[in-house]
Amino acid sequence: MIRLTGRLICANAAEAALVRAHLPEHIARTRAEPGCLSFTVEPAADLVWTVAEDFVDRAAFAAHQARVQASDWGRATREIRRDYAITETP
């Protein structure tokens, strides 16, 4: 299993507005992906969201990352700072 945890950290209200605008679709699309076990993005402060996601294996996580890069979410939030840790459990 691959687990990503961390924070999405907006620099200002404009970045936070981008997150709020694109997040519902991003969550729905991610949760529907093959191999997604869980996916949560929740507000932690005005400009910070906590992120936790679990995928069955490296291949599922890599497919998720590729989809994200090509998505509206990926394009809209590309410049927003991320502080993530990725761990693998056999």
Rank of each mutant, 00 (worst) to 15 (best):
E88K: 11
R67N: 12
C10E: 01
W49S: 02
A70M: 06
A21C: 01
E53P: 08
H22L: 12
A70S: 10
L37V: 12
N12V: 07
V56I: 15
P34Q: 07
A59R: 12
A66L: 07
E15Y: 04
A85H: 13
G74R: 03
T89G: 11
V41P: 00
L23P: 09
E33A: 01
S71V: 02
T87D: 12
E79R: 08
I9L: 07
V41T: 00
D72L: 08
E15H: 05
G6V: 05
R20Y: 03
A14W: 07
V56C: 13
L47N: 04
A52R: 15
D54L: 05
D46T: 10
A63W: 00
E33I: 04
G6D: 05
A70C: 02
A85L: 10
A45W: 01
H64C: 06
P34A: 14
P24D: 12
R75G: 01
L23V: 02
A62Q: 15
R75H: 08
L4V: 14
A59I: 08
A14E: 13
V48E: 10
A60D: 12
F61W: 14
T5Y: 07
L4G: 13
I80N: 14
V51C: 07
G74L: 03
W73L: 05
S38V: 11
A66H: 09
A17N: 02
F39P: 11
A14V: 07
A60N: 08
A62E: 15
T40F: 11
T89L: 11
E88Q: 13
R67M: 06
V48D: 11
L23N: 00
G74M: 01
E25D: 15
L23K: 07
W73R: 10
W49F: 02
V41Y: 04
E15T: 08
E33R: 05
A45Q: 12
E42L: 03
V19P: 02
A14N: 11
A17R: 09
F55D: 12
V56E: 15
I27D: 03
T50A: 06
T30L: 06
R20S: 13
V56L: 09
F55S: 12
W49K: 00
H22M: 11
A59E: 13
H64R: 15
P90D: 15
M1C: 06
A16L: 01
T50K: 03
L8Q: 09
R29Q: 15
Y84H: 08
A11R: 09
R29Y: 02
F39Y: 15
P34E: 14
D57C: 03
L37D: 06
A21H: 03
A28V: 03
A17Q: 09
L18V: 09
P24M: 04
M1H: 15
S38R: 14
R3T: 15
V51W: 05
I80G: 00
R58G: 14
D54Q: 13
T50W: 01
T87N: 14
A11D: 08
C10W: 05
L37H: 06
R82M: 04
G74S: 03
I27L: 06
